[in-house]
């Protein structure tokens, strides 16, 4: 099947079987390896991408379903060498350790921040919200503390 999608702002075409996982198409056919596989069952969130404006697990989407849709992967999150606020904050706050979950966390957090899902919340509420909204992304290195810090920093920056 010929699948055409808008990927990181560009129109891309791939010839693939429609049942192939979006994750595999990204990594194997399009050689965009920033999107990671941690479990293959929608548990860890390492494969998170933004599809039609929602954060989704790319391991649970069939490529056929992506025809004509808009997709952003971690490769499209920064503008060239200029990082997204979330990426910047993750670096500054020490929110990335081994880094394999980091692209997924950056994608989910950018969605949370860009959609204003933390807007107006005081610090305590915002931290609790981050913990709920990011619960689909497992990190085994950080204990989450410095990632929560980073997302709060990024949200404040984006709101300003």
């Amino acid at each position: 099947m010929n699948v055409t999608l808008e990927l990181n702002g560009e129109t891309r075409e791939v010839e693939v079987t429609p049942w192939k996982r979006l994750l595999d198409v990204l990594r194997e056919d399009l050689r965009l390896t920033g999107t990671k596989e941690g479990c293959g069952e929608g548990e860890c969130g390492a494969c998170t991408v933004i599809l039609d404006g929602e954060a989704v697990n790319s391991c649970l989407v069939a490529i056929g379903q992506c025809h004509g849709r808009q997709l952003t992967t971690v490769e499209g999150l920064a503008h060239g060498e200029v990082l997204h606020a979330v990426q910047r904050a993750l670096v500054a706050c020490g929110g990335a350790q081994c880094g394999i979950c980091t692209p997924g966390i950056a994608m989910c957090a950018s969605h949370v921040v860009d959609r204003g899902l933390l807007a107006g919340a005081d610090d305590v509420t915002a931290r609790a919200k981050v913990r709920e909204l990011l619960a689909g992304n497992i990190c085994r290195c950080t204990g989450y503390q410095l990632i929560v810090d980073a997302i709060i920093v990024a949200a404040r920056e984006v709101t300003r």
Partner: peptide
């Protein structure tokens, strides 16, 4: 028949593909 695929796509890379899919998403 699938919509979001959150159940049907679990470990789909290691299972046989269906003959056809009706995408209701």
């Amino acid at each position: 028949v699938l919509a979001g695929g959150t159940d049907l796509l679990v470990n789909a890379n290691h299972r046989a593909a269906p003959v056809g899919m009706i995408d209701l998403w």
